[in-house]
Amino acid sequence: MQPVDKNNFEQEVLGSRQPVLVDFWSPNCEKCIKLMPALQELEQRYHDKIKFVKVDVSKNRRLAIAQKVRNLPAIHLYRNGERVDAVNDQVTGEAVESTIKQVLH
């Protein structure tokens, strides 16, 4: 998963032609770290349809706040520069996958 920060978020996420999944995480967040293997699995499965990126919130707090992230981990899905869906409560691999399917549908 490609790391994205405040400098290239606009270009990599909002300006992307493909839908983008953004994993907002922090090295202090154990739940985020536990979730990562599941996200990597999903990336393998969906990388041709969705771009997977991650934002380290401890270094890009203002960006996260501006994107209405209030709890970690938070998974946001963007299409054509707009947030179209998000998983920010009970975030599991399964929950993320069903959101991906909805977005692709």
Partner: peptide, 18 residues
């Protein structure tokens, strides 16, 4: 508002509240 500012895990979310 769970996941939108209501939290049960301080270590997870503290970064966001600097």
């Amino acid at each position: 508002l769970r996941g939108r500012g209501v939290s049960y895990c301080a270590t997870c979310d503290a970064d966001l509240y600097s």
